[in-house]
Write a protein that binds this DNA or RNA. Structure first.
Lengths: 328, 328
DNA sequence: TTGTAGGCGTTATCAG
DNA sequence: CTGATAACGCCTACAA
């Protein structure tokens, strides 16, 4: 890899002159300019951004530290993050914490050693004191994505509200009893339950929660559930994976969807369109989330004044109604 | 961010001494050592790897340039790549070409400007002369993953062999006619067709290809297909996405799976286990592929001698038989 | 318009 | 054991 100094020697000028030509800032003698450019082209000069970073104290590197890149949802976010960063000439240096706080901690340290200009993070546990302490000491412009953290910039989707949307939808479609497939700590559950509560005081008896991740247990639970005399049941699964599993189980048990049971998933992954019946699901605004996060981050980096105040962006999810939860 | 020079001033020693202490290479006076370490800890010193890179001509950065990070298959690979790189102290700088050769070209240039130590690539089109010229001129240790490129290190799965496996399986399960859902350029198709050919000369009439990506056309094609008198039909979809779509269509048309039609997908994604009937699928050794690629790359980087010769690794995929293609 | 000098934060190589 | 000194590749004054 040829350097400016070498080009300088080759063309008989000084290195700063080469720099001027290659960066096109200042005016230079056209003859020299041509000579230098020709030489650079010939040797396929590529500036050493490492050296540029050292002097300019700007690396054009953005650290991305997230919990699970193999999760399609995050992978999708990364795609848009990269797209947006690229537009402004930044590159992504990627770390996967794998939901492991040790790895996350180490990743944040590495990111600091690379002197990244900014940071996009999906914390393993944003309530952890250790994490909060570390991320704040880093003193790097940061945007939290997917979670809401007090005192830091963040973009996230209002899961509670999304849960309420699903509750309303299932109620409107005439489902009389309900199942939530997930944990009660999930904000989606809370919104879902609250919404249903509005439609009658007896909702407690009408809302069942299935928490287990073991298929056999889930199946047994469903069997027991449907053995009783039941009205039409609306089921909300906390993500599409689980929704697909639920659909498979319902089909296995011979329960008609959406007749006896309506089903709504979460994430609106591509397969929703492919399943039979097509799966209703809640769509998160991935592109918007990623784009906002990156734009915001770059603004913080390039305009520290405006970047100072903390901005939070709560985005709404959209329920996509398909066949799996339709009125009969 | 405190630097070695600052620590040196604070502790009244020279900067190189600080470097020695912090790197623990050479022996230093225990008193000074303690003083320096204390100071470094107090100010949470983190070495500037950018500066280290500049002098050491090693960035510990590995460029990853792939076609579509939002594809679950590649996202999975990235997870393992990161894991393996991390073990050896390397970090990933990630680029998504989005199947766009312009973006790919630019990414390769950026990667070079960052002076990455190595490169993992999934080319948009490995047969392109332009790409071949560029990648070779880069002169960076590179491992191609997922594709086979003459004269370069690569790991890939033998799709042709996988296709043959599927053909054999469907034949053994008693399917008498066959559909391939994908394109005939796909090596999977070739292996599939060749295998079927072994079981009788009339295979040409018995193997139908559905290429369209438009659901309506696919549906119409299937309807026309099954309107005729048909034996049991074995269907091979080029990936799980398509297999799910196919399954949905078959269910919609009221065709019994695996009775009238058997179905096999490709990629063995999580949903195979969740669908009803459970989907047979070909499992690619993602972890092995990624791990091999990264280990090989690091070896090339750290031991240029051994890294010189070109190594190719062809991995076999494994067919996972489930309910969707079982003998009746 | 061009060259010289200095510095970014390290590491490495010398003397001492 | 420790401190100068040079070097990595580039940029930004400053001077000519």
């Amino acid at each position: 890899m040829i350097t400016m100094t070498e080009i300088a020697k080759l063309t008989g000028v000084s290195q700063p002159t080469v720099s001027r030509v290659l960066n096109g800032n200042t005016a230079v003698n056209p003859k020299i300019r041509e000579r230098v450019l020709a030489c650079a082209r010939e040797h396929e000069f590529q500036p050493n951004v490492i050296a540029q970073s050292l002097v300019g104290s700007k690396t054009h590197l953005i650290g991305v530290v997230l919990t699970d890149i193999s999760n399609a949802f995050f992978a999708d976010l990364v795609k848009y993050l990269e797209q947006e960063a690229r537009k402004s000439g930044y590159s992504l240096i990627l770390f996967n914490s794998n939901y492991n706080t040790e790895q996350e901690k180490e990743s944040l340290a590495v990111v600091q050693r690379y002197r990244v200009d900014g940071l996009i993070v999906v914390p393993v546990d944003e309530t952890s004191a250790q994490w909060n302490a570390q991320i704040r000491r880093l003193d790097i412009p940061t945007v939290v994505i997917t979670r809401h953290v007090e005192g830091m910039d963040s973009v996230y989707v209002t899961h509670r509200e999304a849960g309420a949307q699903v509750g309303r939808h299932l109620w409107e479609e005439g489902y009389e009893e309900y199942i939530f497939f997930g944990t009660t700590r999930d904000a989606k559950y809370q919104g879902f339950a609250e919404e249903l509560k509005k439609h009658g005081p007896g909702f407690g008896r009408k809302l069942t929660v299935i928490t287990s991740k073991e298929e056999a247990k889930v199946k047994a639970g469903l069997e027991a559930y449907f053995r009783k005399e039941r009205g039409r049941t609306g089921i909300f699964a906390y993500n599409d994976r689980r929704a697909v599993q639920m659909l498979g189980l319902l089909q296995m048990l011979g329960i008609d969807v959406p007749g006896q049971a309506g089903l709504v998933g979460f994430d609106n992954t591509y397969m929703c369109e492919f399943l039979y019946p097509r799966l209703s699901s809640v769509s998160q605004p991935n592109e918007e989330m990623a784009t906002w996060a990156m734009k915001r981050l770059i603004r913080k980096i390039e305009d520290p004044e405006k970047g100072r105040e903390v901005k939070n962006r709560a985005l709404k999810a959209t329920l996509i109604c398909r066949e799996s939860s339709k009125k009969q």
